[in-house]
Every structure is written in C-alpha cells, then in structure tokens.
Design a protein around this nucleic acid. Structure first.
Lengths: 334, 334
DNA sequence: TTTATTTACGAAACCGTTTTCGATAGATAA
DNA sequence: TTATCTATCGAAAACGGTTTCGTAAATAAA
C-alpha cells in the first residue's frame, strides 16, 4: 500500500536517491550497468513516480487544458478525440473545463491556470467572451494558448480554424442557385469571429447576386427562446425560403419548428447547416451540411501546442491555420 | 511574470511562511487581524497557490479521472457534462482518458493512477476488459473507483447503471406486440455486464412469449466489418423482422444497410435502439429509442465518488444504483 | 610520470506548500 | 504570587522528486 519512492529504491540498492533518479531518467551520468540494476529494481518494486513532486521541481506538469463551451456537441466531442490522440502520443494528460458559454466561468478557469497547473491550453471561447484580458494574463505567465474554432485573433498565438467565410459563401451561393431569394442566416454570438466570418460570407454571396433580402438572426443558449425566434421567422411577411444555420444545436429546433408549423423542407425552405453530425444523411429530410474537420482540428491544435511547448524561445505570433470544411449537399437544400 | 509565492507574501508582510499559509487556509491559529492583512496582500499581489506543491504535501490532488472508451458518442459526452457539473461544484478538476476499447490502454492508464495522480476515478470499461486486476490494483492503493454504464460488478464499489434487463425486456415485448416474431439483438462485447443484461432481457421476453427465433449478433469496433455483419442478416433465410441495437454507433450502419438493401423500416423491419440521441425523432423514419439518463448518470456517479472521497473510513462495498431508462416509441417500431 | 580529462556517483539544495511542534506573551485560575 | 491556559505566531521538517555541484577513480594526453 505505501507507494514506493525513490528513497526506498535507493536504500534497497545502496545507492543515492540522485543516482536512482538519474538512472530512471536515462541520464548520461549513469553507467549502463547501474541503469539496468535500477530499472530492474524499480520494475520489481512497482515504482511509479509521484507526478506532483516531479511537476513541482521541474515546473512542468505534462498536462494541458481543453477549455470549451460544452461537450454535448458532436463537434467538440470529436475535437477532444483528436486532442486526446495527440496528447497520448506525447505523454501528456488532458484536463477538461467547460464554460457553459459563461464569461465569468471562463475567467475563473483562466485565473486558475496562472498557477502553472497546465503547461498549455487549447481553447474555444464562450459566446459571451468580449474581452481577452483573462486569456492574455495567462499567456503572459508563460502558458501558451492555442485557439480553435472559436478564436480571438487579436492575441499573438495560433488559431486553428476552418474556412468559414468561403463555406458560408459557397453555401449561400448554392441556395441561390436553387432559386432561393430570401435566405436567412442564424448565428449565435456576433462577438465571435467565427460567426462574423460566416455572416460575412453569407452577405458577400448575397451581394454578388444582388439580392437585397438579408436576415441575420442571433440565437442564444436557451432552447425555448431559440424556438420562439426560429418560429417567428415563418410567421412574418419576411419569411425566408432558405436558411443557413451556424450552430449545430439549432438543427433539432429548426426541424421541430418546421414540423410544428408545417413548413416543408426543401419545398418551402431549403436548409444548410454548419455541423459535424454523422447521421445528417438519415434525417428526414437528409440534411445538407458544412462538415468541419473536427477531429483534424483537434489534432492540429494539439500538435501546434506541443510544438510551442517544445520550443524554448517564446516569440509567439498571431497566425491562422485553416483546415477546409467540406460541404455535402443533400435533400434539405435541393 | 515570476509567479508570487507564499514566501514573497511573507517577506512583504514580515510574517512567516507558516503564518501566511495558515491565514489563507483560514486556520483558527491566526487572528482575524492578521488574516485580513494576509488576504489583502495576497489579493493585491495576485497570489495563486501552486497546486503541485499543495498536492505533494497534502497528498490530495483535488483531481478525478474519467476513463471511458471514447467520447465521440452522445452518451459519454453527456455523462461528462454531468460529471463536470458536479466536479465544478466540489472544486475538483477532471482528467479525461480514453481507452479506445483497448484493454492494454486501459491497463496503462490505470497503472499511472497508482502514482496518486488522481483522488478518484470514474470509469466505464472497454469492450475488451475481461480482467479487473489493473482496476483492483488502483483501488488497493486507496484510490476509489466508481463505475458507470459499463461496470464490473465483482469489485467492491458502487456501480451506476440503468435498468438494462427491464428495458431490453420491454423493448422486445413491444416488438412482439407489434407482431415481430423474428427479433435479432445486436450487442458489442459479451464480456460486458451491460450487454449480458440486455441480452438476458431480450431472451426473457422471447421466452415469455414462447418465441424460438433467437439471434444475437456481436458487432465490434470496425465499421466496415460491422456493416458486413448487419448486411448479412438480411441475406439469409434467418432474416429478422425486428431488431434491437444495444450500441449507438450501429444506428447509422443499420440505416445505411437498410437503405442499401431496400429494407423498409418499419414495414419489413422494426427497430428499437439503446441510445442517447437528441435527433432520433427526426430521423427517417423516426427512431424508437431507449433513452439512458446520461447526464444524470454522470452526476450521480460523480456525487457518489465525492461522497467516498469525503469519508475517511474506506469500507467500500459492492452496490448498484439504478437510474431507469425511458423508452420512446416512434415510427421505426410501429 | 605527470597532468588533464572523462566517467560515475553522492551530498545537498531546491521546488512551494502544509503541518507539527514549540515558543512567547498575556490572560486566567489556583 | 505562582501555575495553567489561551491565543498567536515562527522554525523547521516534511512531501518526493530533480538538479547543481563536488569528488574520487579511471582513462587519456603530455
């Protein structure tokens, strides 16, 4: 039960603690013969290093944090899969934190990271995040941050994003080509670059086709309220014939609304959605999707972070890595 | 940049490190006047305790681990949501580990936990897990484990499960009542109690109705292979007219198979699935589901673990907490 | 042979807390 | 007046590793 320590191995072998430590670290200072003896003893005694003692002295925890709005979303779940894959490879541990779209929670989480709990941070900011002071403070304390998906480009670090502008542009153009002339766009927070980019792509496509109907809705985090917002779309004279959803969560609500109000998809409304949703092709009707490469985003984000951690010089610059999304046209937009 | 330590506060205030530490811990040994002074200085200097020093000395990390097969599954994603909610409340941090259904990965992860990295563990075992030595070893080193969903009942600890037998029984009975006489059951690993319980429920219902057709398939983790297994069902004389899926991942494959082979749901095949899938009602056809209370399972599992952690005496006993699932009948089984 | 260098190891400081054990001064009790 | 508490604080020993630095022996260079 009493876990075995370096000191116990040292005593067992009549060596010093320092020697045992170095032997286990495969230091050049120790002879191969001694290393073998130590390794064997450690194995036999079932030695496992205390990570907290090690982290305290080395000032590195071999731990990274993932800060996301929430996890009940296939996108973030897949991102975490990618992150975990890479972290495992590099021997890092992964702490998970959720902001639940709350800035104050995000700030509290970031505050904690100034303790050096994690070596680096992978994050996707909350909807509410309209300041970056709390993030900058962590970066200033020498903990690198890599953003993905919901990024803040004003900070000098790497952002892993997808081609949101182009995707929204292509999606909107596609709806136009399908004879939609009143296309609505539904996003969540205008504070997020990701939403602004998609909105810009949407507007650019409208402009190119000289379409004046423009309808940008902002949904929040409250399903009931969002339902009302979506439903109101179809009760007004301003009723659209096409819609682009920027948020995965809204799919269900939109399908519900259309079901409840007898809006036929794609007959009366054509739908295209940013999502990462394996079953989209089996919905009724099959949903056209803009598939973000979630798993890849997670992998690249983690790899980028570990690259930063490996480097000693910390001249981090603002930079974007763009992984293209893939649009899959299905019946909902046909 | 150099993070502020207790020593710095002590020097600043001409107090001892011990006094500062105790003041911040709100110890009765320190006068209110001194506490206020210390608190104020700590706040002003931006003190954040080093968690590794603290964990090393206190032998408690305020960290728990979640060990799951994978996360790209709405069930586990929701469970984590529940866990995180409770962990936040108790001031705990959450480490995530995925086994990817591999026993050796699971063993490696458990091995690491013998270092005392985490105070407790929440886990759902892998498909391959046919031994519990690696788990027992961690429990013996005084790190409590709470199982959920995929449990191992032979260990003296708490298991959070849902009423799998009853759900499978009810689901099978329902298909029988809809005139299915050749009902297949698809699970993953027969090593898992959860699967055995569901299979037993399925068989019990068949028996009760004196139906002799019995068809238990085992799907694995390879989509292509699983597709073949499912497809072969409909090419044989043994072709079923009803099917119960024990695994969420298989939904997409089954719908694909039925689409490819022109098997009409529910006309030629009625389907009921264990899943936790918000969009099930909007699939084509709407899918009847046995909804596990994923979020609740996560919450209860975490609460149970924290209760164990709070207690000093460690007389853990085998015990099951059953949270009932809810069956929602939709068109796929009608 | 002498000197310089390399090899292999150990003593001790250190990482930043927490905790034990005194110590002191003032208050209270005997 | 003396003994006993009580309240408040500090010195120092943990916690279990890592790292610096010193040293003795072995080897190489002169």
């Amino acid at each position: 039960m009493p876990s075995v320590t370096l000191k116990m191995i040292a005593k067992e072998l009549s060596l010093s603690v320092a020697t045992v430590s170095k032997a286990l670290a495969n230091s050049y200072e120790i002879s191969d013969a001694t290393k073998n003896i130590v390794l064997e003893a450690a194995r036999k005694m079932g030695y496992i290093a205390n990570p907290y003692a090690s982290s305290l002295r080395k000032r590195r925890s071999k731990t990274v944090a993932v800060v996301i709005p929430e996890i009940a979303d296939s996108f973030f779940a897949k991102v975490i899969n990618g992150i975990e894959e890479v972290a495992l490879f590099y021997g890092y541990h992964v702490l998970i934190y959720m902001t639940h779209e709350s800035l104050s929670r995000e700030q509290a989480i970031m505050q904690d990271f100034r303790s050096g709990r994690v070596d680096g941070i992978l994050m996707s900011v909350s909807e509410q995040t309209d300041t970056v002071d709390h993030i900058k403070a962590v970066m200033d304390s020498n903990t690198p941050v890599v953003f993905f998906d919901r990024v803040r480009e004003e900070l000098p670090t790497t952002c892993i994003v997808t081609n949101d502008f182009e995707s929204a542009f292509a999606a909107t153009s596609h709806l136009i080509s399908k004879n939609c002339r009143k296309i609505a766009f539904v996003g969540n927070s205008p504070a997020l670059a990701i939403n602004r980019n998609r909105e810009s792509g949407y507007k650019a496509a409208l402009k190119e086709h000289q379409i004046t109907y423009e309808n940008v809705l902002i949904c929040g985090n409250d399903p009931e309220n969002d339902y009302t917002i979506l439903a109101s779309l179809f009760r007004s004279d301003y009723r659209p014939d096409g819609i682009i959803l920027s948020v995965e969560k809204l799919i269900q609500l939109l399908y519900q609304v259309c079901h409840d109000l007898n809006v036929n998809i794609p007959g009366q409304l054509k739908v295209l959605t940013f999502t990462n949703f394996a079953m989209a092709g089996f919905l009724n009707p099959p949903l056209s999707t803009i598939n973000q490469p979630a798993y890849e985003i997670g992998k690249v984000a983690a790899q980028t972070l570990f690259k930063k951690l490996a480097r000693t010089n910390h001249i981090s610059e603002a930079e974007s890595i763009v992984l293209p999304s893939e649009i899959i046209f299905r019946e909902s937009s046909n």
